[in-house]
């Protein structure tokens, strides 16, 4: 196996972070580990209840959702899971874009697209949990 520099060109010779230093990447790294541990319980619990327990996905319908979200426990569970999973995934994709998109312009616009779509999904999910109406329609 030959040793190949992960990014050719000026990338490694001219690091972008000159001047002020920030701990942003350290906090992002730490957030991935802390949110990851919480998500192991929230997401695997969610998957077990929804896909395995009592016939799994076959029993899920509007009435099932209404029954669950009548309880603040499941509302909070889903809200925390939504926010942590979206932030964890968005930061993961941010890292991947930073790794593979070589042109500054490409990197910038891909991250903008990522942040706008993630913001939209977090907002939509939060709104749905808080405004759910079991008597709709």
């Amino acid at each position: 196996m030959s040793l190949v520099s992960p990014r050719r060109g000026p990338g490694l010779d001219a690091p972008r972070s000159t001047g002020q230093r920030s701990n942003y990447e350290l906090y992002a790294w730490l957030f991935m580990r802390i949110s990851g541990i919480v998500l192991v319980f929230l997401v695997l619990g969610h998957l077990f209840i929804m896909n395995v327990l009592d016939g799994g996905v076959q029993r899920i319908n509007f009435a099932f959702v209404a029954g669950r979200w009548a309880s603040p426990f499941w509302q909070i569970w889903d809200l925390v899971m939504l926010w942590l999973a979206m932030l964890h995934g968005t930061n993961g994709l941010r890292t991947i874009i930073n790794d593979y998109a070589e042109r500054d312009q490409t990197r910038f616009w891909m991250k903008m697209l990522l942040y706008v779509s993630s913001g939209f999904i977090i907002l939509l999910g939060t709104l749905v949990i808080f405004t759910f109406d079991p008597n709709i329609g």
């Binding site: 509007f62 999910g125 749905v128 759910f132 109406d133 709709i136 329609g137």
Partner: peptide, 9 residues
């Protein structure tokens, strides 16, 4: 899941 805000159907 957001379709629960549209209608049960």
């Amino acid at each position: 899941t957001a379709l629960v805000r549209v209608s049960p159907e």
